[in-house]
């Protein structure tokens, strides 16, 4: 849904990219060009929120800013729920840009905002799961070769034992099934 909303902005001639931040500075959607490195986006969100708060407190509330750099213009727009940042060429029609960003701000409802936050949380969880576990440094006991025990006839495992089980040739501890109850009755 958000892709469709942002696409109207990205299709405007001269628009390089856009991103959406929530009021806490969290990056909810990133469609900025590659030279907006992700490593710096956290600082970007903090400075944007600081700019808004400082001017609101010390001068007058302003919802819209245009930062004119020699290379690009950056439009900042604020709604009740989000900040919208759009990077454009200096030749962009700013009136058209304002019109199309009005639609973005109008369509970012609390429901859409909730979906964006859920996507953000899901992607953060995926990144945490996909990250490999940190390597464990081997202890000196592990580094030294273990002593070779004398060869003995090993007793056969007791098939009736409930403490371990063999799965794919590996022994797995058998954990007791957790107790579940519903309205006082266990199942």
């Amino acid at each position: 849904m958000i892709e469709k909303i942002i696409k109207n902005v990205l299709e405007l001639p001269g628009v390089d990219g856009a991103c959406i931040l929530d009021k806490k500075g969290n990056l909810l959607h990133n469609a900025l060009p590659d030279f907006f490195l992700e490593d710096f986006l956290e600082d970007l969100s903090r400075r944007v929120t600081t700019l808004y708060e400082a001017v609101d407190e010390n001068y007058m509330p302003c919802d819209d800013y245009i930062l004119k750099f020699p290379q690009k213009y950056i439009q900042l727009r604020r709604s009740r729920h989000i900040y919208l940042l759009v990077a454009v060429e200096p030749t962009t029609n700013l009136v058209s840009l304002r019109m199309v960003t009005n639609l973005v701000l109008k369509h970012i409802t609390p429901k859409i905002l909730g979906e964006l936050r859920a996507q953000l949380k899901a992607s953060a969880n995926e990144a945490a799961v996909a990250a490999p576990p940190p390597p464990v440094a081997p202890t000196p006991a592990e580094l030294s070769p273990p002593p070779v025990p004398p060869v003995e006839a090993s007793p056969e495992p007791d098939p009736t034992s409930t403490h371990t089980t063999t799965v794919n040739g590996r022994k797995r501890p058998v954990r007791p099934r957790p107790t579940r109850s519903f309205r006082g009755s266990t199942y």
């Binding site: 001017v55 001068y59 007058m60 509330p61 819209d64 800013y65 245009i66 930062l67």
Partner: peptide, 8 residues
């Protein structure tokens, strides 16, 4: 920065 426009 060259110009900053504050639009209210």
């Amino acid at each position: 920065i060259e110009e900053v426009h504050l639009i209210s």
